[in-house]
């Protein structure tokens, strides 16, 4: 049985299986092996991709990765017996040529019952303790204690891009999130359209953002590098493009980057914000707003005041109905009533 050593082995086996449908027992074995091997093959390949918690850039994602593998390994205690015993049982007790003892009325056996209930229960108890501790420790709302004070970032989900406001630095960006290494990042997030889910796999995982409400995400990067963040909640045509570049840089480079944003950014005035908040992809927004100095699909802003995030959240708490023309993310947003006459919903 060395077929599984060759990568093409399992395809050959599948054909064989189909031919010997009648002799099911061996193919039962092969299917479970195939399953395991496929899984291993894919998991080993996974290590080559960079935008995932399997290649973490910070301790949060690192712990999530470790937890993932531990949960898998512990659950295996309850699952491996199935993989091993089912083929054995099938082989031994097959009707044709099976050599097993036949006990048609055997219906219960106390000690076995105890094992059947006990083993999964013990596994779950161990997993629950792990779950409890990890969940409490990795609470995304908990600020991370670092040697330097955290950098605050306000995140606004728009259709179909993310706006990052650095209130203490008086800058904002679209399509690019730059954070210094070894510095806690404290994010507060909201949406100015439908519900979205903000996700940076290699650093922190994801959190939902909802209009009129805020959520929080805290993380710290432990090495420099580049990764991608995205929205994982479907929000319409531009959804697949709602990604952003994440750069973890050292503090010198970060300062230089802040300078650059300051010098090249345009003012994030109400007018500019309203143009940004329309239903556009990064590329379209870039074409509409960006200047030549800004990188492709990225827009830099400077902040005229510090109230923008607050205003965005409070937009939904005015106590007055928000007409469809004033609701960012709708087709009619930002257009006068006469403009939309011809547009078919």
């Amino acid at each position: 049985m060395d077929w599984y050593l060759k990568p093409s082995g399992f395809f050959a086996l599948k054909r064989m299986d189909l031919q010997r449908c009648k002799k099911v027992c061996p193919s039962g074995v092969s299917y479970y092996l195939l399953t395991l091997i496929l899984g291993c093959l894919f998991l080993s390949q996974a290590a080559s991709a960079s935008e995932t918690f399997l290649m973490p850039l910070g301790p949060v994602a690192e712990e999530q990765k470790v937890h993932f593998f531990w949960a898998m390994a512990l659950t295996m205690v309850a699952i491996l017996p199935v993989f091993i015993l089912v083929p054995v049982i099938l082989f031994k007790y097959r009707r044709k040529k099976g050599r097993g003892f036949y006990a048609p009325k055997w219906e219960t056996y106390g000690p076995l019952e105890l094992i059947m209930w006990g083993v999964p229960f013990l596994v779950i108890i161990v997993l629950s303790v792990m779950l409890w501790r990890a969940t409490a420790r990795l609470d995304p709302y908990k600020e991370i204690q670092g040697v330097v004070p955290p950098i605050k970032v306000q995140v606004v989900g728009l259709d179909w891009k993310w706006l990052f406001i650095y209130p203490e630095l008086d800058i904002a960006t679209v399509g690019e999130l730059v954070v210094p290494v070894h510095t806690p990042i404290s994010m507060i997030l909201t949406s100015d359209t439908v519900m979205q889910s903000f996700f940076i796999s290699a650093l922190a995982g994801q959190i939902y953002v909802m209009p009129g409400m805020t959520t929080q995400l805290n993380f710290i990067a432990s090495k420099t590098g580049e990764t991608e963040g995205e929205n994982t909640q479907y929000t319409g045509d531009g959804f697949a493009d709602q990604k952003f570049n994440v750069q973890v840089v050292n503090s010198d480079n970060f300062d230089r980057w802040v300078q650059r944003v300051h010098s090249t950014g345009i003012e994030l005035s109400t007018e500019n914000y309203n143009r940004l908040a329309q239903r556009t992809t990064k590329k379209q927004a870039h074409g509409e707003l960006a200047t030549a100095q800004m990188p492709e699909k990225v827009i830099y802003f400077t902040l005229p005041g510090t109230q923008l995030f607050h205003e965005i959240v409070m937009r939904y708490h005015s106590g007055k109905p928000l007409s469809i023309e004033d609701q960012p993310g709708t087709e009619k947003f930002g257009r006068g009533k006469e403009d939309v006459e011809g547009v078919q919903p």
């Binding site: 918690f53 994602a61 712990e63 999530q64 937890h67 993932f68 949960a71 997993l127 792990m130 779950l131 990890a134 969940t135 990795l138 995304p140 889910s197 996700f199 796999s201 922190a204 995982g205 994801q206 959190i207 994982t232 909640q233």
Partner: peptide, 10 residues
């Protein structure tokens, strides 16, 4: 595991 779910949800 909520911990893992933060990564693989959606």
């Amino acid at each position: 595991n909520p911990t893992v779910d933060f990564q693989v949800h959606n």
